[in-house]
Design a protein around this nucleic acid. Structure first.
Lengths: 204, 204
DNA sequence: AGTATTTTCCTAATAACATTAAGGTTTTTT
DNA sequence: AAAAAACCTTAATGTTATTAGGAAAATACT
């Protein structure tokens, strides 16, 4: 029993060690320049042993965003729960996501810089989860439109493009610049401008 | 004389043939999955001959965006010349860029999907030209602010982030979805929303 | 023209790397 | 304690980027 427990732990531990080594190395040196030897050394194994845990280098790369994004998805609904009003939800979404990125810069770096290179990204688990993350945004804009908080003719998909595009752009630059400043700089004024774009024009 | 001319032509021709082969293959199969043999076969040479024209695979990848982006930069000033008003310039910028992307989808694909992977992207020629492309946008927003066409407290850098982020997002998705629809779908309503975000609120 | 030089290209190394083969050692189960 | 399973290792194997070394063709020079 106790042995079984400790064994399972150690197995999980090894797997995690490999993932964390890969994460650090991919984020530091990029996917191409990181070798399987690098990763397995860092994790304290031989190269061959790594193949008992993962199918290969691509598989290992995929695993990192897989874990991160599905955890984000789990957290998101929790975070939006109980918040009233589309603008308030939109605000929470933005601040929440930026904080999550700031908390997991290595995961974010891999998602933003190395994932899209994968030819069949559209067929991955990650993409389907990212779409779910986005769909919450679409719901928020739809709610805003219906409640009269936002423009009556607001296209929720267009609003999402502006929102996500802006977020992603800010994050990409932050990652490229090696996270040398805070992601929250200017966030308030960015948010205000986007609200101006979406909100109902009461004065007309 | 005649020989010299034809020789220079053929030299340029070979170089171009290599670049175009690489462009097609990188865009089709991705950078990693494209081999030097693939490229040189396609261009009608041996692998080794390719190294007389380019330093290596990375160098070849870099070359493609280099050429495209610097040509874009040359064209941009021409295109904005004579257009009056910040909103009109902003509109022209958006439509111009989208058309250029639609006209050179292979270049765009390489820029958008494979370039940021490069660890020292920030130190490349391309990045410095991209920054110049962006700086025209900042100028436009600054002009709009000063002329009263846009909000008096509009931060031009923030406006640029929204504008570029939105554009890039739409383009990335279009590229990932294999250019299966028109980039100009919804462009009008996207533009209108962005204008609402930036423009002076006359009714207040 | 005829020789020297440069350009362009090729066939073979070379070396780095991902992935597999084959099997040993330790742990768990019975 | 024997059998099975889990975990790990060293030594291939095969692919691929890059170099070496030099042939063939074009160009320049006399």
């Amino acid at each position: 029993m106790a042995k079984n427990h400790s064994k399972n732990n150690s197995k999980e531990h090894t797997r995690d060690r490999i993932i964390n080594s890969a994460k650090r190395l991919f984020a530091e040196q990029g996917y191409q320049k990181t070798t399987i030897v690098d990763i397995s050394r860092q994790a304290g194994l031989s190269e061959a042993a790594l193949y008992d845990y993962f199918q290969g280098k691509e598989d290992l790369l995929q695993m990192i965003p897989d874990l991160w994004v599905s955890e984000l998805l789990r957290d998101l609904e929790e975070q939006l729960f109980g918040i009233k009003g589309a603008v308030n939800k939109m605000r929470k979404y933005l601040w929440w996501y930026m904080r999550r990125v700031e908390q997991s810069p290595l995961d974010a770096k891999i998602v933003y810089l190395f994932l899209k290179t994968n030819a069949n990204f559209l067929n991955t688990e990650v993409y389907s989860n990212v779409k779910k993350l986005y769909s919450h945004l679409v719901d928020i804009f739809e709610e805003g439109r219906k409640s009269g908080e936002m423009k009556p003719d607001l296209d929720p998909l267009v609003a999402r493009d502006i929102f996500v595009g802006t977020m992603d752009h800010i994050i990409s630059r932050w990652l490229l610049k090696d996270m040398s400043y805070s992601l929250f700089d200017n966030l308030e004024s960015i948010f205000e401008l986007m609200v101006d774009a979406f909100k109902a024009n009461n004065s007309q």
